[in-house]
Computed example of a mutant assay.
Amino acid sequence: MTRTADEGAEGLRMDGVELQADTPRERLDRLLARRLPDLSRSRLKALIEAGQVRIGGRTMTDAAHRVNVGDVVALVVPEPEDPTPQGEDIPLAIVHEDEALIVIDKPAGLVVHPAAGNWTGTLVNALIAHCGDSLSGIGGVRRPGIVHRLDKDTSGLLVVAKTDRAHASLSAQFADHGRTGPLERAYVAFAWGVPARASFTIDAALDRDPRAREKIAVRPSGRDAVTHVTVEEPLAGGLASRVTCRLETGRTHQIRVHMAHVGHPLLGDATYGSGFRTKAAKLPAPAREALDALGRQALHAAILGFEHPITGQTMRFESPLPADLARLAEALRGA
């Protein structure tokens, strides 16, 4: 392996790396992760998808590409981008705003805060442009005002703090998970199959999947995670159902992992429901087309309630299904 690099306090900084594969048919992303432990797997995957890896002079953008023994893999690592997010003119669906906080109805596809592979075009960039310097600084320069998150491809309601006082109060409410206060979070989801019980609770600890660090898995050694599920209606002759999920904890990918854990992964969830893709072929054409057009997990943060950090008033907001999920629901009902 050869490098043109500077080793600094911030870790490995490379203009370029060349290495020779030494294991038969190893995945490209795993080879790079094994040979370059200074770079995270998510960072390596982003570099591959950005066209920064070449094998034998050919640009490779598939992280799952199998590398042959003796292949020379060349990786270019650009200089780190400025970690301080800048304001960008990105439209916001503002549900409520006052001097202490702002409630946003986030569209699917919008990343909440900058991170590797998404340094721009995030909700934080939009908030900085809209709010100026009024956002709370407790979350740091990359997450100003961010109290909780939604996955990139999950739509729905999210509250952001505009002052440090509001941030502290809202953070405490989310940490309490509504046990002693009015915090309420409810999600509408469309799941494969119809659960046997009309309402039930999933209590299963979650942690990083040791086999795939970008995923979350049910693991006894993980952090407590509790989801309360209510079946609202069976759909498509029992092939699917609409459910409401209420969070008692707020772990990464919690609803998606929990629903997959009980055998009812969310429609459109390529990460945790890939084994159910064949079920889509059983759907009537309109429902199948609506699911194909969705291109994301069928999950929407529909209800958000909390105590206003200044007035003490209980605030509760509801968001209707966005157009893509509304089309899916209509198609499933007609199936």
Rank of each mutant, 00 (worst) to 15 (best):
T227P: 12
G87K: 02
P265I: 01
D82W: 11
A204L: 01
M315A: 11
R211S: 14
D151E: 03
V231K: 01
R30F: 10
T61D: 08
F174A: 06
V103R: 04
K282Q: 15
K282C: 07
A326Y: 04
Q86W: 00
D203S: 14
K152R: 15
G70N: 10
Q313W: 00
P309N: 01
R41D: 05
H130G: 05
P322R: 01
L247K: 07
T314G: 01
K45E: 11
D292A: 15
Q173E: 15
A129L: 00
L32D: 11
R13T: 10
L325I: 08
P83G: 07
P220R: 03
A217L: 00
H264P: 06
I55C: 11
G334F: 00
T2Y: 12
L92P: 04
E307D: 14
R211N: 15
L291D: 10
D29R: 05
G57W: 00
P37G: 08
M315Q: 15
V262G: 11
A290K: 07
L266I: 12
A217G: 02
G70W: 07
N125L: 06
Y272Q: 09
H253T: 08
A217R: 07
G140S: 09
A331M: 04
L283T: 14
R223I: 09
L157W: 12
Y272L: 07
E18T: 15
E330S: 15
A323S: 14
G193P: 11
R197C: 11
A108D: 08
H228Q: 04
R316M: 09
F306L: 10
A290T: 09
K215A: 14
T278Y: 05
K215Y: 09
S134Q: 11
S274R: 14
A172W: 00
Q173Y: 10
